[in-house]
Design a protein around this nucleic acid. Structure first.
Length: 584
RNA sequence: GCACCCAUAGCUCAGCUGGAUAGAGCGCUGCCCUCCGAAGGCAGAGGCCUCAGGUUCGAAUCCUGAUGGGUGCGCCA
């Protein structure tokens, strides 16, 4: 556990005290302390931290919780850093630490800067986060945007928590939809050559292919015009897919998302890689030929029994076995998916994370089955489903329609709201909860808008630091970490420090659960505490950060303020948002 | 029909992998600027955590079932 995490430090101390009690015979040996926690209590009046040790151990030890708790309290308070330990409620042990603990903590924050809160939780474990993976057939829309932000923030969070992270994009350039793209682009090519395009039903009608058509003309002149499809399809497909991917990369760049790996589905075909992956399954006896039952309740009109090559995914918790080959012998879409995950497994990742749209929930079980079959117990796969984004304008639902031209792209969103705002707002909801995105509200400068609220807190601290500099103080972190922090003795000031102390713990909780939204909520809380503390200065002069007649106290107080700003910066960095120094 | 996700204040949502008296914003009511940024703060009202069982020291949280909503369901990716 991380040495910077105050709660894990104290937990280690609790465990040590328990061991000591065992050694002196006050507790039986061989107790399992895995469930012993040290957490901030819900009600701050209960103290700085609480442990459930006595309640967890009462039963296995065959003792009353109170007796254990009291013995533990005596042990713990022998350390001068633990000011008090009191038994409460059903057997909680509420602890209060000495003020120096908080002063040391703040010093540590200022010394480490935005590295404060980095964790060794990940222990260098190799994680692959696959996200976006939008089909290269057009621009990215709002749904992709949320997935992109979520994946990028999750990757940053895991990196911060000590994992070795790869951001990866799977390009679906091997299926029938890129043929459709090629045909659509070809019509735009014909248009560029002065002919009228025939955008038939089923082709992509979007304007974004017009420049692709023009580029095709520039490259090939009119030489493709009288050729049969078989002559130009492959080249046009290649050309268009690359154009689409260039556009997608640009969109991602607008959002501030940078992938480490772009993996091409097409590279799996004709290279033996699909065959190799399937052989790996076959060697385990997981491939067979058979006939599937028709789905109950909703039998397709044209359903008829067919013999197919199937993957025995039911062995790994899936509902039915899944076909990997069509009846004509060609691969189903599932086959390259298997090969792709096989590739990820063989690249040596310990953990895989796939981020899908919620409408792909039906694929979760089969993908988990694949990874379980290929990687055994050594590789885990977590799949995060991203719920819909509901757009609003002036509080009114904003209907999207490709045909009506009110299709909202990633670019539209970023151009209107800005990347920082877009990213933060997209992370203010759990991934599996629908998200309302109101174009007007996200730009409001009120506390109704969480982005503003957090930014404002950061800007206020910067403002105070500027004031302090005018008074001749050195506001560098190096100088502030040397401040006389013992002058921070007001309960309200220590409360703020307590919140700062929760940061490393929160990072670990968020990383463990693959839940970057927790960062956003924590930052909102922290900002709220800062604003609240600021306002206390209205009534109580002594709580203002700037004390014009006492520069020593001022330096200590702005060190506290700066610590809050440091954590806000670190948190925003994980979310991919730039902290602002003043509001405009 | 089956599977997965969801259900918490009037509305939109948190709730730290089982902890103490369930929280925040919006909306409503009432307060706080001779003062570091009031773009903020404080207080009040508002709850059968959808329902019924179960697990245990202890459940909004875990299990089972029900109800309501969303998504998906063999040669489309």
């Amino acid at each position: 556990m991380d040495p910077m995490n105050l709660f894990s430090q104290i937990r280690a101390q609790v465990i040590a005290a328990l061991d000591a009690l065992v050694a002196e015979g006050a507790l039986p040996a061989g107790l399992d302390t895995a469930n012993v926690t040290v957490e901030p209590p819900r009600d701050p009046a209960h103290g700085d931290m609480a442990t459930n040790a006595a309640m967890v151990l009462a039963k296995p030890a065959g003792m009353k919780p109170r007796d254990i708790a009291e013995a533990l309290a005596v042990r713990l308070t022998a350390d001068p850093r633990i000011a008090s330990a009191e038994v409460a409620g059903p057997g909680f042990l509420n602890m209060r630490v000495a003020p120096e603990i908080w002063h040391d903590l703040l010093r540590s924050v200022l010394t480490q800067g935005t590295d404060y809160g980095r964790s060794v939780l990940g222990d260098g474990i190799k994680v692959n986060v696959e996200f976006v993976s939008a089909n290269p057939t057009g621009p990215m829309h709002v749904g992709h945007t949320r997935g992109a932000v979520f994946g990028d923030a999750l990757a940053a969070l895991l990196d911060f928590a000590g994992y070795d992270v790869t951001r990866e994009y799977y390009i679906n350039d091997g299926g029938a939809q890129v043929d459709v793209l090629a045909r659509s682009a070809f019509e735009r090519y014909r248009e560029a050559c002065g002919l009228s395009p025939e955008i038939r039903e089923g082709l992509y009608p979007g304007d974004y292919l017009i420049p692709v058509g023009a580029a095709l003309k520039e490259k090939y002149g009119e030489s493709l015009l009288d050729q049969p499809e078989s002559a130009w399809l492959e080249e046009v497909r290649e050309f268009s897919t690359e154009a689409m991917m260039a556009m997608i990369r640009e969109d991602l760049a607008l959002l501030g998302v940078k992938m480490d790996v772009y993996f091409s589905e097409k590279s799996l075909y004709g290279t033996g890689r699909i065959e190799e992956a399937l052989k790996s399954l076959e060697d385990r006896g997981l491939i067979y030929t058979g006939v599937l039952e028709p789905p109950k309740g909703k039998t397709p009109e044209d359903w008829e029994p067919r013999e197919q090559t199937l993957f025995r995914s039911t062995d790994f918790g899936d509902d039915v076995d899944r076909p990997v080959k069509k009846s004509d012998g060609s691969w189903t879409y599932f086959a390259p998916d298997i090969a792709y995950h096989y590739d990820k497994v063989t690249r040596g990742y310990d953990q895989l994370i796939d981020i899908f749209g919620a409408d792909h929930g039906g694929y979760v079980k089969r993908m988990k089955a694949v990874v379980a079959a290929l990687g055994g117990n050594s590789v885990s796969l977590d799949i995060k489903l991203i719920q819909l984004v509901k757009l609003f304008k002036n509080g009114e639902p904003f209907k999207m329609s490709k045909r009506a031209g009110t299709f909202v792209t990633l670019r539209d969103v970023v151009e209107q709201a800005g990347a920082d705002v877009t990213r933060f707002v997209m992370l203010t909801r759990k991934n599996d909860a629908p998200l309302d995105f109101d174009f007007d509200k996200v730009l409001e400068q009120t506390k109704d808008n969480p982005v503003f609220y957090v930014q404002y807190a950061h800007a206020r601290v910067c403002s105070v630091l500027r004031r302090a500099e005018e008074l001749g103080l050195d506001t560098s972190d190096a100088a502030l970490s040397g401040a006389a922090l013992e002058r921070l003795d007001h309960p309200a000031e220590l409360d703020l420090a307590r919140k700062v102390a929760e940061w490393p713990r929160l990072v670990e909780i968020a990383a463990r659960g693959h839940e970057p939204h927790r960062i956003a909520f924590y930052l909102y809380d922290l900002a709220s505490d800062l604003h609240g503390h600021w306002a206390k200065g209205n009534d109580e002069m002594g709580l203002r950060f700037i004390q014009e007649d006492d520069l020593g106290a001022t330096q200590a107080k702005i060190a506290l303020a700066r610590s809050v700003a440091v954590v806000i910066s670190a948190g925003l960095a994980i979310l991919g948002v730039t902290p602002v120094e003043e509001m405009r």
